[in-house]
Design a protein around this nucleic acid. Sequence first.
RNA 1: GCCCCGGUAGACCAACGGCAGAGUCGAUGCUCUCAAACAGCAUUCAGUGUGGGUUCGAAUCCCACCCGGGGCACCA
Length: 844
Amino acid sequence: MCSDEVRPEPREKTMTQRTTDAREEPATYDVAATEQKWQPVWEKLDPFRADDSSPREKRYALTMFPYPSGDLHMGHAEVTALHDVIARYWWQKGYEVLNPMGWDSFGLPAENAAIRNDAHPADYTYGNIATQLESFQKYAVSFDWSRRFNTSDPSYYRWTQWLFLKLREQGLAYRKNSPVNWCPHDQTVLANEQVVDGACERCGAEVTKRELTQWYFRTTAYAQELLDCLDDLQPTWPAKVINAQRNWIGRSEGAHVDFVVEGRPEPLTVYTTRPDTLFGATFMVVAADAALAGELVTDEHRGALDDYLVEVRKETEINRLSTDRPKTGVFLGVHAVNPLTGARIPVYAADYVLADYGTGAIMAVPAQDQRDWDFATAFDLPIVRTVQPPADWEGLDTMAFTGDGPAINSANDEIDLSGMGVVEAKSTTIAYLEAKSLGRGTVNFRLRDWLLSRQRYWGAPIPIIHCPVDGEVPVPEDQLPVELPELRGADLKPKGTSPLGAATDWLNVACPTCGGPATRDTDTMDTFVDSSWYFFRYVSPHDDSQAFDPEKARAWGPIDLYVGGDEHAVLHLLYARFFTKALRDIGLVDWDEPFTSYLSQGKVINNGRKMSKSLGNGINLGDQLAEFGVDAVRLTLVFASPPEDNIDWADVSPGGSLRFLQRAWRLSGDVTSEPGADPATGDTGLRKLTHKTVHEAEVLIEKHRFNVMVARTMELVNATRKAIDSGSGGADPAVREAAETVAILLSLVAPYTAEEMWERLGHRPTVARVGWPVVDPALLVEESVTAVVQVQGKVRARLEVAPDITEGDLEALAMDDPTVVAAIDGREVRKVVVRAPKLVNIVV
RNA sequence: GCCCCGGUAGACCAACGGCAGAGUCGAUGCUCUCAAACAGCAUUCAGUGUGGGUUCGAAUCCCACCCGGGGCACCA
């Protein structure tokens, strides 16, 4: 660290007890000793074990399970601290809470680390899991550890494989040959969701395309439902996640239009969102890398297409996505006929049209589409305006007009769109095309099927056997799991084909159908498959007869609250939603959606920047915990801001958090009444605040305003301190009630401090399960409130009035007030707005 | 370019359309101390990004713009 001099003093000074004066209570408690003291006690009490047969109402709280790369970091600390507020609150409120944790332990980092260190991915993985488990336990999150599992355990991935086969039976998993995203660094294919701005989501390498036969999940089968259900999730999911998913699914409405191609029996069908502009279609473009291009091209032009394809395949995704790149393409030597104008229009192949969207072909309308305009300009093709731009529009000779306006040049003997706006012209055209069987209105989605095979080692093998006679044969269920071959000492370096192919003993098997020689599928599944169903497994994690127990799934689920980062806004959350719907249709569950509500937490950053090795601004969680203790770090993370905001570690003060915790703890030493003392005999003012605080804390926790809940707890601590020092004193039972309430409130955020307080208050552990304080409604009622009297919106007087004062009484009182009378100054009162009991506004 | 979210004291953040300030950090001063740390007490500082509108009344609702964050994007 570079700033040693300005850092807080070492631990002994800030954290140990002060024992200078034997008569005085110690001013602070020893954080490290407290942590060591309570961990074994809690382990023995096991207070967070979820009981399937409990009669209490059930709640399922889930936080994203970690990938085991090294020890826990600030991000884990934040998400679990926030999540634990809710989970512990639910326990206190009397629910039976399922709050499980495990590890998402398949994946590339383990494999890459193994390659670097000449070790085995399993060693790296299980070593890190042990480290993280220990850290989690010290961090005192209310997880039910009896339910933990790892996705890389054969007892888990057996069921990942089984579910794959179930989806395949339903036609939801299939293999096809297609141009796919290829990461040249990791030497594997990637799903669409894993390509970010043309680069590999994991390693950042520029993605290229390859033509490969791969396994897919048919996510598009649920495109509409995935979109529709977002409406139901809207109130309980963050807007940004809903928005991201909507954009990703990308529904659009338009039409399929059939074009007759000269010398070809079947039509060339295009998808367009602007059927109203069909009169302006002056040429057509098919995706250069689509099979269609090869089918359409004449022999004369085939050479040119092949040359062009070589160029196209060389382009990286990043270049291809650049919109200011000049348009390129080749003429295919064929013509089609515009069904409305009868014009003969040329057909081109170009790389600005995508093979896997719509039909892989478009009608080009240069006057109303900028991309088509650019192509038409480059290839000197005709441009016909069919929407009239406004008179003062300056793009008339230079660009496409995509706005609304009256249709022009849009009439033939049978249909006349002239003067219609875009919306009307669209529906009129679609109706005409449908009547003439030339096309039909249709809906299209941007969402693609999920490419799930990976050419890497550390994942669940795809349970398929390829037989020269029987083709794709599923591995029989009783032979699951298909275990990963050990391949210890083998070369796992990415070679573009799966390392599993090298395990010949494993590879070669008898075909389950015909018994002849066959080979296993050598690809492994994307690790997002593992995490798409893990929340089901937690309901019956040790069941070796089924993936999960449907009865228990019904009893616990769906998940009441899911907490995680928004880097998974589309990836994991969309896949998990897809899996849930697929499993529902298979009949395994009755949930439509897995996550009833979702809390997306911000990131922990430092000095305005993301923490990173290269910037050297990383904050090490272990160091923070050693310096300030678990509770202070947790409190800091919860208190810093609303959960969804980023936390800049440079803006917060774990030292301040520790000081607050010590202040709170000190209350427990100053309480001199006995446990069970009747608070009703105590100071009413403090009691009112205590009950109000509990009441507000409930509302705030349910609204996920944890930072404000902590602020309210701080207020209660301050008021209790004041009561002890200069109020009713430490013997007042109301002070005990307040201190005990503080301990319970803190049990959600600072479990060690809360437990220590609870013990000093004369109770036995654990404070985490004593139950939420019962609010006495009588104590929430104020005897008097301050009413504000405004004249012309300016505050002129304050009146102490009864909370149930009538509007008439309040108005009379206000009009009698001398300062108000002075402010009115004899002017005519035009209007009096009364909002009893809080406000009167007099307008003159 | 299209779509979401946000902008309040020096910093982090609060405020059912009704007194802009709950809490924390920082700074400053004081008390305690031989001195310091710890602790305690007190003080400090914004009129809510900008401009309009609705309203008796706007940080809050509406419109436009600016700035920041995020999603989508050669998706026809």
